[in-house]
Simulated scan of single mutants.
Amino acid sequence: MTTPLVILAGGRAARMGGGDKCLLAVGGIPILRRILDRLARPHRPVVLNANGDPGRFAAYGLPVVPDGIAEQPGPLAGILAGMRWVAANLPDARDIVTVSGDTPFLPADLVERLVAARAASGADIAVAASAGRTHHTAALWPVGLADALEHAIREEGIRRVGAWAARHRVAVADFACDPVDPFLNVNDPAGLAEAERFAASAG
């Protein structure tokens, strides 16, 4: 089946003063809508990982899956939540692709290129990269890693996505940054201003 997409929006957005970064508008369009416009495809399931009242996302018609681990330990918990939801609801799916909910300019071919990169190298997972940086939350993950991931979070205190990825064979899909880094994230007011500037220049 088509690889499901899990949008990670479970963070507290402390550097933005709280709230949902995925609902912030860039160029007048909410980031979540921009992500869906780029990556949603017919027959591709999309799941939103977010905590709190799911009603604030009702307009998007997406399943909203909270972290299954208390205290919101970071994006690894969101990746795990996505794996668990897909295993329970889409048992034919072997993998998920995750993206951060604060990235308004993701490449439209992200899923396909991650799948191709992993297949070409025989790796376990695939991650995106641009401008010499690896973006571990933009990645292809086997659903079968869920138990090992949960153990790493609960029993070992692992919090960094890169540290978890490093335990496995990793393929990298490298993306160009022209005219903008496709993994530019709205993580703070400066990031939002940069995203607004590009959206304005792109029309």
Rank of each mutant, 00 (worst) to 15 (best):
A116Y: 10
E150W: 10
A120W: 02
V97R: 00
V99M: 00
A123G: 06
F175I: 00
G101H: 10
A165R: 09
A119V: 04
A138R: 01
E112D: 15
G132L: 15
V172H: 08
V97A: 01
R167C: 09
T137C: 12
G157M: 12
V161A: 06
V111F: 10
D102G: 03
T137W: 07
D124E: 14
L149W: 04
A93E: 08
V161M: 10
V97S: 01
A152V: 07
R154H: 13
D109W: 09
A166H: 08
G144S: 12
T103S: 14
L110C: 08
V143G: 02
F175D: 01
T103L: 07
A138C: 14
G122K: 12
A128R: 11
D95Y: 15
A119L: 12
N89R: 15
A87L: 04
H168N: 06
A123V: 10
A138Y: 06
G122N: 09
W164I: 01
L140E: 03
A163M: 06
V86Q: 02
S130T: 15
A126D: 08
H135G: 00
I153Q: 05
R167P: 03
G144Y: 07
A88D: 13
G144Q: 04
L110T: 07
L110N: 04
S100Y: 05
A93L: 11
T137P: 00
A166C: 02
P91C: 11
R160Y: 15
A163G: 14
W85A: 02
A123Y: 07
A128K: 04
A126P: 08
L149C: 05
E156Y: 10
A148R: 13
A126N: 10
V143P: 02
H168L: 11
R154F: 15
L145T: 07
W85H: 13
S121P: 00
P91K: 06
V99Q: 00
T98G: 02
A165P: 07
D174C: 13
A131T: 09
L110I: 12
N89I: 04
A93S: 13
G157F: 11
G122A: 11
V161D: 05
G157P: 06
R133F: 15
A119C: 04
V170R: 14
R160T: 04
R118Q: 13
V97H: 00
G144C: 04
I158D: 05
A123T: 06
S100K: 02
E156M: 11
G144H: 02
A129C: 12
D102A: 03
L110V: 08
L106P: 03
E155C: 13
P142H: 08
V161T: 14
T134G: 01
A129Q: 11
R118P: 01
W85G: 00
R118V: 02
F175P: 00
W141R: 01
V86T: 08
N89H: 15
R133A: 15
V127N: 01
A163N: 11
A88P: 03
R169V: 05
V115R: 06
R169W: 07
V86M: 03
A108D: 13
